[in-house]
């Protein structure tokens, strides 16, 4: 079956319900939210009975195709982040922001009160121990934004899972609700900002 056919979710009707197609990515994040996702441990087997993966760090697919759910970790710190986020928004019926960086910029946003030029100068030129440092200028490097932004300042976000990282139980609770057709709900103990 071609990948595009899988994406449409059309062909092969073997009687089983169509699997939800999921894409995930990490933008200005640390992959900690993805690690917490993997921390659902044996429930991954339950999940895989109901979902299949499009672009994720696990499949190494480079671009996000049509999906039911897009899960985005990390904030927006450069031009490439904006392109990837918009691709996710165009292709995903439900876009989920996961983790502190996606929701409020998180750790990378700690640079927001510092002038970008001064920040780059400090990191690449004047920091002690960088005697032969130089400012990166490879044309393939995405240009940094002057501030780090949370996802909802760039695209519409449908659901948020807070935490640094969110507990695995919260991530599983979200997927279990969506698979069961329920509106996701995180109660006490599953909503954490730290």
């Amino acid at each position: 079956m071609s990948r595009s056919a899988q994406r449409e979710g059309s062909p092969v009707n073997d009687g089983a319900p169509r699997k939800l197609r999921i894409a995930t990515t990490s933008l200005a994040g640390c992959f900690g939210c993805h690690m917490s996702f993997l921390d659902i441990d044996e429930k991954l087997f339950d999940l895989l009975r109901h979902v299949e993966f499009d672009r994720t760090p696990l499949t190494d697919i480079k671009h996000c195709g049509p999906c039911d759910i897009g899960v985005v970790e990390g904030g927006i710190c450069n031009a490439e982040n904006v392109h990837v986020l918009r691709e996710f928004r165009r292709n995903c019926k439900i876009l989920v922001a996961i983790g502190a960086c996606a929701l409020n910029g998180g750790l990378p946003a700690q640079r927001n009160h510092v002038d970008l030029g001064a920040c780059l100068q400090e990191v690449y030129l004047t920091e002690p121990g960088l005697a032969r440092g130089c400012m990166p200028n490879d044309p393939e490097l995405p240009l940094p934004l002057d501030k780090v932004h949370p996802l909802h300042e760039v695209v519409k976000v449908d659901y948020s899972i807070p935490g640094c990282p969110p507990p695995a139980e919260a991530i599983w609770s979200f997927f279990a609700d969506v698979i069961a057709g329920r509106t996701p709900h995180l109660g006490h103990g599953l909503i954490h900002y730290d």
Binding site: A97, L103, N104, A109, P150, S160, P162, I191
Partner: peptide, 16 residues
Amino acid sequence: AYDLGVLDADLDYFFP
């Protein structure tokens, strides 16, 4: 915020 079920800010951040 936890008790009110606030998951995100849903407003633009000031970053003062």
